[in-house]
Simulated scan of single mutants.
Amino acid sequence: MNVFDTQKQPHTAFNRLLAILEDLRAKCPWDKKQTLESLRHLTIEETYELSDAILEGDMQEIKKEIGDIMLHLVFYAKIASEKEAFTITDVLNSTCEKLINRHPHIYSDTKADTEEQVKQNWEQIKLKEGNKSVLGGVPGSLPALVKAARIQEKARGVGFDWDKKEQVWEKVEEELQEFKAEFNISDEKQIDQQKAEEEFGDLLFSLINYARFVNINPENALEKTNKKFIKRFQYLEQKAKENNQQLHQMSLAEMDVYWNEAKKM
């Protein structure tokens, strides 16, 4: 096996990354200064960039962003090893042990023939590992929409869920009617902002719940709509500029002409 073949082996590539990071940590002024805290916001940014690449379906960009995140994970382990807290080997072995422990239907004699049974077993095992609540594994800093979906998935894992999607849709309609009744858009009277926010939150939560029942990822769905809106709005801006028009001076009807053109693209 020549050197080019060995570089295609996962363990060789991983060891190469570790060696490069050792060099950078010892010699590069920027890398020497980094801490767990200083890397945190950069890791979050890289994660969102990976998310964007996945939604765009850009495999080359996905590969690049996975590499960036991999670097960050190795960097965290390197800093931890300098503090004599743990090493990258500890991290990998810990993950392997967790996967084996949480898949007793593969590595032991527990039976789980469906995805739902696997999820239920998973939640029960995590409670045995020390989680005080089924919802304890949901990070507090998650964006609210993602958090709502994860909360609902966790609750479902222990059987707290509706039986049919029709029941969930009834809840959506109930929440919508409650919101409309309380905050009628044709009524000009001042509304209770706190109560309106609470009711609107209930409506969103029920919609996210319904999305789960019909296998729609609400975060992906909303982000795709965001991207669609951005694309159409930028087309509107471009066409206005080409025709020497200023958006703030155009009527909505005039803007709608370009908007409808964008929808056909």
Rank of each mutant, 00 (worst) to 15 (best):
E261G: 01
L142D: 07
E61N: 13
Q249G: 00
I216R: 01
E166N: 06
L24D: 15
C96T: 14
D58V: 07
E199S: 06
E261M: 02
F179I: 05
Y107N: 12
V74K: 09
R102A: 06
E178G: 10
L17R: 14
T35M: 08
R25M: 10
L204A: 04
K228Y: 01
R156W: 05
S133L: 08
A85Y: 09
D58T: 03
H11V: 10
D187Y: 06
N2M: 10
V91I: 13
W30L: 15
E129N: 12
K83Q: 14
D192Y: 02
K224H: 05
Q249V: 02
M59W: 13
G140K: 10
A112R: 07
F205E: 09
G136P: 01
K126L: 14
G67F: 09
N220G: 00
G159R: 05
E199Q: 07
K78I: 09
E219K: 07
E199F: 02
V91L: 15
A77W: 03
K189S: 13
L21K: 15
P139E: 06
S81Q: 11
Q194I: 09
K228A: 02
G137I: 07
S51V: 10
N184K: 09
T43C: 11
Y210C: 01
W169M: 10
L204M: 09
T114L: 12
L71C: 15
D5I: 12
R150W: 13
K263A: 03
K33D: 13
Q238W: 05
E129K: 12
L142F: 11
L50W: 08
K239Q: 05
V146I: 13
R150T: 13
L142V: 06
Q7R: 12
A148I: 11
K126C: 11
E178Q: 12
K263I: 02
Q234R: 09
F14G: 06
E178L: 09
M250I: 01
E65D: 08
D52Q: 13
P29A: 09
L99E: 14
M250L: 05
Y210W: 09
K264D: 05
L42Y: 10
